[in-house]
C-alpha cells in the first residue's frame, strides 16, 4: 500500500468536509434567513440560548474578573504599577476574555444541545417528517437558532462584561485594599466605547459560529445514538476552534497595531 495514501485520503476528506460546510452555510443563509420567518421559534431559542445561559456566563465572568485582578496586581506590583489593575481588568474583560469565554461556555452548553437535538431529530426521521409536512427545516430549525444566537451572545457578553468588571472590583476592594470610588473611576475613565463594541461584534460572530456548528453537525449525524454523540462532540470542538481562530482574526482587524 502506498504510504502517502492515508495522507491523501485525510486531505480529500477535509476538503470534502469544508465543501459540505460551505454548502450548508449557503443554505442556512439563503433559506434559513429569508421569509417565511418563524418568530415563535426565534423567541423560544432566544430563551434557550440566551436567558438559560446567563448563570454560566455570569459565574464564568465573575471568577475570571476576580482572578484577573489578582494576577494583574501581582504582576504590576513588581514595577509599582498597581494603579493599572482596574483599567487592565476592564480592558481584558471587554476586549478579550468576556466574548471568548462566553463564546466557549455557550459553545459547550448550547452548541452541544443544538447538535444533540437536531441529531436526534435527524436519526429518528423527524427532519424528514418536517419536509413531508411542507415545512422547510432550514427555515424552521436552522434560521431561528442562528438569529437567536447572533442576538443572544452580544447580550450575554454585555452582562458578562459588567459582572466580570464587578468581579475585579470585588477582589480589588476586598482583598487588595483598593478604594472603591477610585477603582470605579479608573475603570470608567479608561474604558472606551470601542473596547465594549469590539467585544460585542466578536460575540455576534461567535454566536453565528456556535449555532452553525450545532446545526451542521446535527443535520449530518448518522447511525443512531453513537452518531448523535459524535455530532455533539464535533459541534463543540469545531465551534471552540473556530471561535478562537475567529477571535484572532477579528482582533487583527479591529485593533490594528500602528
Amino acid at each position: 500500500m502506498n504510504p502517502l495514501a492515508p495522507i491523501g485520503t485525510a486531505v480529500f476528506g477535509l476538503l470534502a468536509e469544508i465543501g459540505r460546510l460551505a454548502w450548508f452555510t449557503r443554505d442556512a443563509l439563503l433559506q434559513g434567513l429569508t421569509p417565511r420567518i418563524y418568530f415563535g421559534q426565534i423567541l423560544r431559542q432566544l430563551f434557550r440560548i440566551g436567558y438559560s445561559s446567563l448563570p454560566v456566563v455570569g459565574l464564568t465572568a465573575f471568577f475570571t474578573g476576580g482572578a484577573l485582578a489578582l494576577q494583574i496586581y501581582l504582576g504590576s506590583s513588581r514595577f509599582n504599577a498597581e494603579s493599572l489593575v482596574a483599567s487592565i481588568v476592564a480592558l481584558g474583560i471587554t476586549r478579550e476574555l468576556g466574548p471568548v469565554l462566553a463564546g466557549l461556555m455557550v459553545a459547550g452548553r448550547v452548541g452541544a444541545s443544538i447538535a444533540a437535538e437536531l441529531g436526534t431529530m435527524k436519526v429518528t426521521e423527524q427532519i424528514d417528517a418536517l419536509v413531508t409536512l411542507s415545512t422547510n427545516p432550514f427555515k424552521y430549525l436552522v434560521g431561528p437558532r442562528l438569529v437567536a444566537a447572533v442576538i443572544s451572545l452580544p447580550l450575554l457578553v454585555a452582562v458578562g462584561d459588567t459582572i466580570g468588571i464587578f468581579g475585579g472590583y470585588f477582589v480589588g476592594t476586598r482583598s487588595l485594599d483598593f478604594n472603591a470610588y477610585a477603582y470605579l473611576k479608573n475603570t470608567a475613565d479608561f474604558l472606551k466605547l470601542d473596547d465594549v463594541t469590539s467585544g460585542l461584534i466578536k460575540a455576534a460572530v461567535f454566536g453565528f459560529i456556535i449555532a452553525l456548528m450545532g446545526c451542521y453537525h446535527g443535520f449530518n449525524s448518522r447511525g443512531g445514538a453513537q452518531g448523535v454523540g459524535r455530532a455533539t462532540t464535533n459541534a463543540v470542538v469545531s465551534a471552540a476552534i473556530l471561535i478562537l481562530a475567529a477571535n484572532f482574526l477579528l482582533t487583527s482587524l479591529l485593533f490594528k497595531v500602528e
Partner: peptide, 19 residues
C-alpha cells in the same frame, strides 16, 4: 415543492413525532 408535498401524508417507521 410545498404544493407538491401538500398532496402527501406519510406515516414513518418510528412515527417520527416531534418530541
Amino acid at each position: 415543492r410545498e404544493r407538491f408535498l401538500a398532496r402527501f401524508g406519510m406515516l414513518f417507521q418510528g412515527a417520527a413525532l416531534f418530541d
